[in-house]
Write a protein that binds this DNA or RNA. Structure first.
Lengths: 251, 251
DNA sequence: GACGCAGGTTACTCAAGCGTAACCTTACGT
DNA sequence: ACGTAAGGTTACGCTTGAGTAACCTGCGTC
């Protein structure tokens, strides 16, 4: 309609903002929109609108739609992992540590019901995001596997295996070519025939599912969910670690 | 190029086939394509090509893209649930039953690495499929929860609660408006403060994740994966059912 | 005080791909 | 023998939405 600026020229209206700020606003908007609509149904126009900015700015700062999504995923994942790491102090006894970690995890999911869980769910099964996803999941598995090893060496103090530094939470360069973790042969640490990493994987998976469930049930209590998870995970894991294992019957 | 039929008129070439056959071919092609490309990246043209038929036929028989996907999901889910139900005879002791069920499940996933698991993964977090997905998951949870209840009443024969008929596997009318399972108030059966259905949900989730893992690791052994799952699930669940529960520490 | 760059905009281009209109052709029932 | 419905086709319409070209503007600075 009017010449160009759309506003009467002297009204400051919405100010120019520094890049860092706008980027966060855009990410916020993107997370909201991706969560509500799903990756494909979300349009860049809507995201831009929702961020109160125009589309080319989004492209200028955060790149293509896929890159934007990965950026969202990355930010939320980092926040979540930080929340967990902050809660599960490495010097606590294993069960307490696991409990704290779980509580933090479900607390986080509960508090951001349209953030992490939904994005994460989107990312599964969309090849373009397999890389980022694998990285994130690997980090989670690493944390859990770490706890399990810790618990194990608590019980049988044995050769006192060298602990790896601790899961490495520093912000990595956002990409890396997604190392798919072909299991390193030296790292096949087993307990009674059961590879701890796979157990960790199962536990992470169970947590993911309960996180989904939590995200879908707005009035469910995160702490109670954590307790349930703990019941399954710990009671099972604890027994495993004492050497009790289940073996398939001869048939 | 040539007039119409593309083939010299007297060559039978590819015959006309009855609808039922073509539908299965189309579903096969669709499952393949959706699995490889993902729902959105798969094009109807490609699916039609891959089925050796032209696009309008697909629309004529199976409807829109979404309907087609749901049909795939439904067919694969039914096959999988049948495989499980066939393996886990209801009169076996609980652990054996769970074991058989898990073995069948992972066997199925392993045998159809580009079928069930991948489709299922696609469906998560895409609103249009939330309904069908919820139904499927509910059926799986029902099966597992059924086993847990069974196991529980084995242990403490108590008031001998009325067992529901058995998970109901008959082919339902493909739709139903997705009943999202708001928990029926009478059905809050708990063990030591832990709702069995949520435990079942966690176990199903863990299985789903290991199924993902299996689908991603072509040379992994399904039976071994089932054993691992059994170790976590049964050792944990068994203890839960004896009344051992973990409770959060006072802090 | 002019000039450049960071912050911002409007208004396209262009491809992908779902869904359909309009049209063939042969098997089969009567 | 012949009509009709079931099986099949080509070729197109039309929307949606990613990504971009081309253009404003005012603050900080030399």
């Amino acid at each position: 309609m009017s010449r160009y600026a759309g506003k009467v020229p002297d009204v400051p209206a919405f100010k120019r903002l520094p890049r860092a700020v706008r980027e966060q606003q855009m990410l916020d908007a993107a997370v909201r929109t991706f969560s509500r609509r799903g990756f494909h149904a979300a349009s860049m126009d809507e995201i831009a609108d929702s961020a109160g900015i125009s589309k080319p700015m989004v492209y200028a700062y955060l790149g293509t739609k896929e890159e934007l999504f990965v950026a969202c995923l990355h930010r939320e994942a980092t926040r979540m992992l930080e929340a967990i790491a902050g809660a599960a102090a490495p010097d606590l006894p294993a069960d307490l540590r696991l409990w704290r970690g779980l509580r933090a995890f479900f607390g986080f999911v509960g508090a951001h019901r349209d953030g992490w869980a939904v994005l994460y769910r989107q990312a599964r099964g969309s090849q373009p995001f397999a890389g980022e996803l694998a990285t994130i999941r690997a980090r989670m598995v690493e944390v859990v596997a770490g706890m399990l090893h810790h618990a194990q060496s608590e019980r049988e103090p044995e050769p006192a295996r060298e602990r790896e530094p601790e899961p490495a939470l520093e912000r990595e360069p956002i990409r890396e070519p997604a190392p798919i973790r072909e299991r390193e042969p030296e790292a096949v640490r087993e307990v009674g025939g059961t590879d701890l990493e796979v157990v960790a994987y199962a536990l992470v998976g169970a947590s993911e599912s309960l996180a989904d469930w939590l995200a879908d049930h707005p009035d469910a209590d995160p702490a109670a969910t954590a307790t349930r998870m703990m019941n399954v995970a710990w009671l099972g894991a604890a027994r495993l670690l004492t050497g009790t294992t289940w073996t398939p019957p001869e048939e």
